[in-house]
Amino acid sequence: MDMAARPYRSVLYIPGSKDRALEKARTLPIDAIIFDLEDAVAPGEKVAARGTLTAALKTSYGNRTRIVRINGLDTEWGEADAKAVAEMDCDAILLPKVENAAQLDALASLCDKPLWAMMETPKGMLAAAEIAAHPKLAGMVMGTNDLAKELNSRFRADRLPMLPGIGLCLLAAKAHDVVIVDGVYNAFKDDEGLKAECEQGRDMGMDGKTLIHPAQIEVANAAFAPSEAEIDLAKRQIDAFEETVAKGGGVAVVDGKIVENLHVETARKTLAKAEAIAALTE
């Protein structure tokens, strides 16, 4: 399946140094995994974690997209991480705190994998269009914890302080047809709060959500998948529009609302996403 076409409803962070977590991830109903060599690995374990992760990736993770987050290239581990990932059996490499396209150029010179960018600083937000336009960029990950720290913003359930930055990244990702997944929700036992934040991200246009705990998977998968009602509406819109066109018309009506070409295009994307999700579970 093409990386851009596949679902990214649930993207779980897994420490690259923990054998038990690496093994458990093979059994979880997640669309993608971020194998973390950065924040989740202590400084003294970072070198050994490369070998641990390389060995784990030699065994299949099924249909799950495998993304490896390295340490920044300005750290003592970043360059060696990138060179190690170049030899790993994974789908993409994720660079933290991306703030310009030059950083992606530097990474591309070390690792010939599709690139993903962590978007987590004010400079990154303001350079989102430049970053998304990079020819090797396949995805963006919102780092909302770091962004909140940089903004010195207070926590709000509606994430109002972060919406300008999130919006800039969304616009950039959609303009350049790259995947974009939302930041983590820290209270992993708060299903209602997680559901509300997932729905906000989905309403905005996010492709999925990064997760910090397996307990969050079910909520994210449900929020970012087309509902039965959305699938039913999409089918009826397509049928009604095709019937109208066959009769020489250009606009159909479904449930009292007009259906034009643009609505049909959205409806087809909804059905394609539902089919791609079903394919992952086969």
Score class of each variant (00 low, 15 high):
residue 28 L to N: 01
residue 224 F to I: 07
residue 282 E to Y: 00
residue 55 A to D: 14
residue 272 A to E: 14
residue 90 C to V: 04
residue 184 V to F: 08
residue 223 A to S: 12
residue 218 E to T: 13
residue 190 D to T: 00
residue 161 P to Y: 10
residue 26 R to V: 11
residue 74 D to F: 03
residue 40 A to C: 07
residue 70 I to P: 10
residue 280 L to D: 07
residue 155 F to Q: 12
residue 212 I to L: 15
residue 158 D to F: 11
residue 215 A to P: 06
residue 274 A to L: 05
residue 29 P to E: 09
residue 8 Y to C: 03
residue 93 I to M: 09
residue 226 P to Y: 08
residue 34 I to M: 09
residue 68 V to H: 02
residue 238 I to C: 02
residue 221 N to K: 14
residue 155 F to I: 10
residue 79 E to W: 06
residue 57 L to P: 06
residue 208 G to Q: 05
residue 17 S to M: 00
residue 109 S to D: 15
residue 127 A to N: 12
residue 79 E to F: 06
residue 236 R to L: 04
residue 7 P to Y: 05
residue 226 P to W: 06
residue 176 H to S: 06
residue 35 F to W: 00
residue 101 A to Q: 08
residue 53 L to W: 10
residue 88 M to T: 00
residue 162 M to W: 11
residue 147 L to Y: 15
residue 126 L to Q: 08
residue 263 H to N: 14
residue 252 A to S: 11
residue 86 A to H: 13
residue 203 D to G: 14
residue 3 M to V: 09
residue 172 A to K: 03
residue 29 P to Q: 14
residue 127 A to F: 07
residue 133 A to G: 13
residue 150 E to P: 11
residue 190 D to E: 01
residue 86 A to W: 11
residue 39 D to I: 00
residue 208 G to S: 07
residue 181 V to G: 03
residue 28 L to Q: 03
residue 46 K to W: 04
residue 264 V to H: 08
residue 32 A to N: 04
residue 49 A to N: 12
residue 124 G to Q: 03
residue 15 P to A: 02
residue 19 D to T: 05
residue 225 A to I: 08
residue 148 A to G: 15
residue 67 I to R: 02
residue 263 H to G: 05
residue 44 G to M: 03
residue 5 A to R: 04
residue 85 V to M: 01
residue 46 K to C: 04
residue 72 G to Q: 01
residue 197 E to K: 05
residue 278 A to L: 07
residue 110 L to P: 15
residue 204 M to R: 15
residue 49 A to M: 05
residue 129 A to M: 09
residue 36 D to N: 10
residue 268 R to A: 04
residue 184 V to E: 10
residue 149 K to R: 14
residue 117 A to V: 02
residue 126 L to I: 06
residue 70 I to K: 07
residue 126 L to E: 07
residue 164 P to E: 09
residue 68 V to C: 01
residue 61 Y to M: 10
residue 39 D to Q: 07
residue 117 A to I: 01
residue 185 Y to Q: 10
residue 246 A to N: 09
residue 55 A to N: 12
residue 194 L to W: 05
residue 31 D to S: 10
residue 132 A to M: 04
residue 171 L to H: 09
residue 9 R to D: 02
residue 200 Q to Y: 06
residue 236 R to F: 05
residue 23 E to M: 05
residue 150 E to H: 15
residue 205 G to K: 15
residue 205 G to Q: 13
residue 160 L to G: 13
residue 179 V to H: 04
residue 236 R to G: 09
residue 189 K to C: 04
residue 113 K to T: 00
residue 170 L to Y: 08
residue 97 K to D: 02
residue 35 F to A: 00
residue 255 D to C: 13
residue 174 K to P: 06
residue 218 E to K: 15
residue 261 N to T: 14
residue 9 R to H: 06
residue 248 G to R: 00
residue 133 A to S: 15
residue 112 D to M: 08
residue 246 A to G: 15
residue 267 A to W: 08
residue 194 L to E: 07
residue 200 Q to F: 08
residue 15 P to Q: 02
residue 217 I to R: 14
